[in-house]
Design a protein around this nucleic acid. Structure first.
Lengths: 182, 182
DNA sequence: ACGACCATGTAAGGGGTTACATGATTAG
DNA sequence: CTAATCATGTAACCCCTTACATGGTCGT
């Protein structure tokens, strides 16, 4: 039941870096956390409200700028302390749900061509992710080696590279196997 | 909104292998799909009911055996056809949610020791998974090379091995990095 | 004029987990 | 005697996504 709310801490963490609006949070999440995290508007706004009620974030409203007023949120001391505590807690693993592997496992009931097509699709996605990660690695290394987040960015990128490389390797192995025994 | 119901096909696929009860499905899922898929009782029973109403599975009730009667489900022709169709559909990727990487990304706000502890925990989990997968690979190769599912089992296991190996490699890299700049 | 971007939020609803309720059989 | 296994199912509940509602500004 408890199912700790990971979105709360994701948002809190982003606000620890700099004050932002819900809209900004969404964009930052997409651009910078995109390969390992996701947040949608429909969830961000209610969570932000909750965080505010709890006193973990402050809210400042920018009025008079056409369209709805912008709500800028910033982390409070209480929020920062909650964030620090969170890092101390063990991570409860998510129950796995890998649909590609489910299909492969049940592959006996599939048309061989369908199976191959799915793996090829997946290989394409992962190969282009790999190229993207490597490009960003180069870029960050050229531009911002002294940023306080540098080490952490590089580590998450490296995780992406490792995962994508092994995914591509597995796809190649699987495709070879399935095409050999076609 | 659609959000195709992956549980339906997981269950259907297991019933395609052999007729089973909800209880059996849970056990098979845990033992054989455990490393890439998960199902809980609270979800299996309602889905099974839905599948039956839709005519994708048949139900046979074994009465008089102490405790609640056992419901044995088997796939119908309609169900088998729906399953085959499913393999033809592209896989809609799940939005990613990797809490360890989220924490690493926000690592600037963490105690270094907490971060290291989380990565070590994760490394332990993945390293023991790796050992388990390799043991099962050996076992299957010794015992059931002629099983109709052999190729597919080996492919899912190999995916597990690839993923676990790359996870362990990343952890070692990350730990070295974090301990060097402590 | 039109689309992209800025910006907030609500409503509906599905998918899935956990806890609860119930109870017989079997192995140690 | 007790714990594990067999076996079904419901209720509560949360997390999160998608779709909808609304509208101003800016670039082309």
């Amino acid at each position: 039941m408890a199912r700790s709310n990971r979105t709360e801490y994701a948002i809190l963490g982003l606000l620890a870096r700099e004050p932002m609006s819900g809209y900004d949070i969404r964009n930052v999440a997409e651009e910078q956390l995109g390969h390992f995290w996701h947040e949608s508007f429909g969830h961000i706004y209610p969570v932000l409200k909750r965080l505010h009620e709890r006193g973990w974030v402050d809210k400042r409203i920018e009025e008079g700028r056409g369209g709805p007023p912008r709500h800028e949120y910033s982390i409070t001391d209480e929020g920062a302390s909650a964030l620090r505590d969170w890092f101390g807690e063990p991570i409860e693993p998510m129950p796995p749900r890998n649909e590609l592997l489910l299909r492969v496992f049940l592959g006996r009931f599939a048309d061989r061509d369908d199976l191959v097509a799915r793996i090829r699709e997946y290989r394409g996605v992962r190969a282009s992710a790999l190229a993207r990660f490597e490009a960003i690695q180069d870029q960050i290394d050229r531009e911002s080696t002294d940023h306080p987040d540098h080490t952490f960015w590089m580590l998450t990128l490296s995780a992406g590279v490792h995962a994508a490389r092994s995914a591509v390797a597995w796809c190649d192995e699987a495709l070879a196997e399935l095409e050999a025994t076609s």
